[in-house]
């Protein structure tokens, strides 16, 4: 395997027939880190990934992989490998031939390339399927083969376009840890596009939240969750209430909202319970304040049932001062 490389974007812009898809974004991804590009559809995350891969031209700006500007390099010369959302496994070739494809293109002899494909399939525990055709595999198996095929080019950066979206929820969680394991084992730079904040939180060292072709925030998952920069980020990652507090916009984690008896003196808001949602480990309490704001409180399951609430109950709401996090305006 080659060494991991840093990936750096400098004012990278993408325009399609006048429509701005990516708006001068700059970003530095450390070598060997796991980066997730997170955002709603149409936010420019896939275009960004495809520009890094070389499947899309850069309208303006520079993309650097390691010490080199790669704007004009073809995909295979960039040291990147891409895993496609649909996996794009060649249906007419066997699993082993799919994995060995890049070697075949380089003119490596058949016996050697199949031997190396076999070793790569071992890494993703797929050796027993090497003679099958891709259509004979399940979604999870196809994904492993696609991963093996991409790793076969010995990339220093692996690009993954919504790699888990085609899988069912259980498999998604399993493949998630598998991706993390492989990334750690190989020490490569991974750039992973997703619209699932849960996936990004679980996987990434660096979460890049994108909106309207711009980066809304780039930080560690913990920082994003505890200190979202804008209302958009707070809303998109979920678990936050966005309130107007004396002229400032604040984000307040739902699990930081304390529900107090109605007469409590330290109350910051008075509210009525509008909804109770039981979720297993915790319970979400929907609240409506006197001023008409809606917010959510999340309580541990046991804590909730120690003094249960019912819809329609009048309560007071409080939070510790340090729990309120001030937001700047959406860019």
């Amino acid at each position: 395997m080659s060494d991991a490389q840093t990936v750096e974007l400098a004012a990278v812009t993408k325009r399609y027939d006048g429509a701005l898809a990516v708006d001068a974004i700059s970003l530095k991804i450390k070598a060997g880190s796991y980066c997730c590009l997170l955002g709603p559809s149409g936010c420019g995350k896939s275009s960004t990934l495809r520009m890094i891969a070389g499947h899309e031209d850069v309208t303006d700006g520079h993309i650097m992989i390691g010490p080199r500007v790669v704007n004009d390099d073809p995909p295979a010369a960039r040291g990147t490998a891409m895993m496609f959302q649909s996996y794009a496994l060649f249906p007419h070739l066997s699993v082993a031939e799919n994995v060995a494809f890049s070697l075949r293109m380089k003119g490596v002899a058949r016996a050697e390339r199949l031997d190396r494909a076999e070793r790569m399939l071992d890494l993703v525990s797929m050796t027993e399927f090497s003679d099958r055709k891709p259509t004979q595999l399940s979604g999870g198996q196809q994904q492993r083969v696609a991963l093996a095929r991409a790793l076969m080019t010995e990339p220093s950066v692996l690009l993954l376009d919504e790699p888990l979206s085609a899988l069912d929820p259980f498999l998604r969680v399993r493949m998630r840890s598998e991706l993390r394991r492989i990334q750690a084992e190989m020490g490569l730079t991974f750039i992973h596009v997703t619209h699932s904040q849960e996936e990004a939180m679980a996987l990434a060292d660096l979460v890049v939240v994108m909106n309207d072709g711009r980066i809304a925030q780039a930080a560690s998952p913990r920082e994003i969750y505890n200190a979202p920069r804008t209302p958009f980020v707070a809303r998109f990652i979920g678990g936050h209430n966005i309130l107007d507090d004396g002229g400032r916009t604040i984000a307040l984690r739902a699990d930081d909202v304390a529900i107090l008896p109605p007469g409590e003196a330290a109350a910051r808001r008075r509210a009525r319970v509008s909804e109770i949602e039981y979720r297993g480990p915790d319970v979400r309490v929907g609240l409506e304040t006197e001023a008409g704001e809606t917010l959510n409180a999340v309580m541990r399951e046991r804590a909730f049932f120690d003094s249960p609430l019912a819809p329609g109950a009048d309560v007071a709401i409080g939070w510790r001062p340090e729990a309120a996090h001030e937001l700047s305006r959406d860019a």
Partner: peptide, 27 residues
């Protein structure tokens, strides 16, 4: 025809001719 197949081939180092010969044409 999903162009992702051809992009995948290109990503794996195939020249345009190799992409046509080994991916597009057989498919």
């Amino acid at each position: 025809f999903d162009p992702a197949y051809e992009e995948a081939a290109r990503d794996l180092g195939a020249t345009p001719w190799q992409t046509f010969r080994h991916v597009t044409l057989p498919m």
